[in-house]
Nucleic acid binder design. Structure first.
Lengths: 156, 156
DNA sequence: AAACTATTTAAGAATTATTATTACCTAATA
DNA sequence: TATTAGGTAATAATAATTCTTAAATAGTTT
């Protein structure tokens, strides 16, 4: 289940449970980011939330994203080219990352659970999260770039 | 096979094949980074290579790391906290990433090949690379942090 | 409901990893 | 050896993220 299917009440409770105040700014950011499955950057979140909450500041967006990460409601996905994107899907899954257009699409990876379980049992490493990316060119970009794209043309 | 098992000759040929000159700076950086399996940051590479080649500049390190990435001899692993680390293992594998001390250890993941093949055959996505991270606390750090570490205490 | 207080916000400054610029320099080649 | 396209070192520029601070407010207490 995606957290964004949960009610506003649940979001507020999650914040308060950890001692965070449920401010209207935070609620606006949460509502936006928990339902955007395109893996937006902080700047995109800022631009989108501003439509609903025009006085919000970029610093508040950053700090709320940090809180949401701490609450394990979103995952942070740093990429090269100085861009970090945010994913409301915190369950094990595969991110299909297009290096040309920057599109990121989640696909299921049911085998992840048993893989993590096996590693957990065979090592002394205490697992708290994971990230599985597959890089390449999406169906739209793939046909235009027969050879591997030069760095300049890459978004991620 | 790791590329760092290859000879100096092979490194030079790989550079020239793509039209890059085999300068002593590049060779020094290659020799270092292709044998360091601790996933060093650019700054660490700079500090280490400087011992062998004291006049080298940080900009050259960055630009050579970019070349090595283009030649697919290393993989770039961006993390939060503004740190990017570099991995000479470009074959599918799992990075076990300790969030407390920042240690990254590769483990094998033989099932990766069939997974990638299956995705390749069932989608129109053209795969060029992958990244599989497992986050948590290594055997050394795990015993000291029963609860999930606060953000301030995390290295990655 | 008003007061209280620790937290949060907005704005802007600071930080810093990475990239760009530029004036020499040199590897590869003829 | 001369030529030259590309590389280097030094440093400036860029930009994502974090920090700082004064004013505001959420949650609680009276």
């Amino acid at each position: 289940m995606y957290i964004h299917e949960k009610s506003l009440r649940t979001i507020i409770d999650a914040l308060r449970k950890k001692g965070y105040k449920a401010t209207p700014q935070r609620i606006a950011i949460c509502k936006y980011v928990l339902q955007d499955t395109t893996h937006p950057s902080a700047k995109i979140v800022y631009q989108r939330v501003r439509k609903e909450y025009p006085t919000i500041s970029l610093a508040t967006v950053y700090q709320t994203l940090k809180v949401l990460k701490e609450l394990n409601l979103i995952q942070e996905l740093p990429f090269s080219k100085r861009e970090t994107r945010f994913d409301p899907n915190v369950n094990p899954h595969i991110n299909m990352v297009c290096l040309k257009c920057g599109k990121i699409v989640d696909i299921n990876f049911p085998e992840a659970d048993s893989l993590l379980k096996q590693i957990s049992e065979s090592t002394r490493f205490r697992i708290t999260g994971q990230r599985i990316d597959i890089y390449g060119f999406c169906e739209v970009c793939g046909q235009f770039s027969i050879s591997i794209a030069k760095n300049k043309e890459k978004m991620l």
